[in-house]
Amino acid sequence: MKKILIAFALLALPGLTLASGGEGFPLEKAPIDLHNKASLQKGAKLFVNYCMGCHSLEHQRYNRMGRDIGLTDEQVKNNLIFTGAKIGETMKNAMPKADAKRWFGVAPPDLSVISRSRGVDYLYTYLLTFYQDSTRPYGVNNAAFPNSGMPHVLWELQGMQKPVYETHKDHDGNETKILKEFELVQPGSMSPPQYKEAVTDLVNFLAYVGEPIQLERQRVGIWVILFLGLAFVVFYLLKKEYWKDVH
């Protein structure tokens, strides 16, 4: 029994870690829907246009991605491949890692499993909480990941926002500033609701990439559960038939 409890604790620990978010900032719930193929398609478009200049998806193939989210090979080639890659190749970017490390200090990570390692709520909050900070190299900081080295690549869509702090005093009179909300100071090409929807699409796509087989697994799992339920009834009736003379 003790070993079982330890096993459950270990399984729950990663989820608890992810739920805490970056540096204690509260995470927003990501309203993802992996059955929404239109959202997945829009998320794929956002990724190749805004993220793939630096980040790659080295464990995801273009043709597999297209098939899963409802696109033909021709649609993928015409709309989602800008690196000269072939339809059966993995989604690598064209930036040499050595150059990326020299330019940014560290090579931007592959994002194939970022939704599993960080959690979709973290990604959703991260993309929503960039704000102006003149002390940072790219002029922005992030509430979910303070002092992140990544620029706000979606700023043209969201615009720029500034943080609004709330001051709290303790019993000794010491003041502490707590980030409360954000104020939009430079509008982007999207309204705030539109930008949230775009971030939802992008995170939805990354959630799919993190485990492309999950929808198929869920579909098969339903049939497995139904089979086990039917088998239980059959086995129970057989058990009663075999043991009726004994009782």
Results as ranks from 00 to 15, higher is better:
Trp103His: 10
Arg64Thr: 10
Leu57Arg: 09
Ser112Glu: 03
Cys54Ile: 06
Asn93Leu: 05
Pro146Glu: 08
Tyr122Trp: 05
Tyr62Glu: 10
Cys51Gly: 09
Asn142Tyr: 06
Ser115Ile: 03
Asn141Lys: 04
Met150Asp: 10
Gly53Ser: 11
Arg64Glu: 13
Tyr62Cys: 08
Ile114Gln: 12
Thr129Ile: 03
Val76Cys: 02
Asn49Gly: 01
Ala94Thr: 15
Ile87Gly: 02
Ile87Trp: 02
Ser56Pro: 10
Phe104Tyr: 13
Asn78Val: 01
Val164Phe: 02
Pro109Arg: 13
Val76Gln: 04
Asp73Asn: 15
Val106Met: 06
Lys92Trp: 00
Gln161Tyr: 02
Val113Ala: 11
Arg136Lys: 15
Phe82Cys: 00
Phe104Glu: 09
Ala85Gly: 11
Asn79Val: 02
Tyr138Val: 06
Thr125Leu: 07
Thr90Arg: 15
Pro163Asp: 10
Cys54Lys: 05
Trp155Phe: 05
Asp133Phe: 06
Glu74Asp: 12
Gly53His: 07
Pro146Gly: 15
Lys101Phe: 01
Arg118Lys: 14
His59Asn: 14
Lys101Met: 02
Gln161Ile: 00
Ser115Phe: 00
Trp155Asp: 13
Thr129His: 05
Gly159Ala: 06
Glu74Phe: 01
Trp103Thr: 12
Thr72Asp: 05
Arg102Glu: 04
Ser148Thr: 15
Ala100Lys: 12
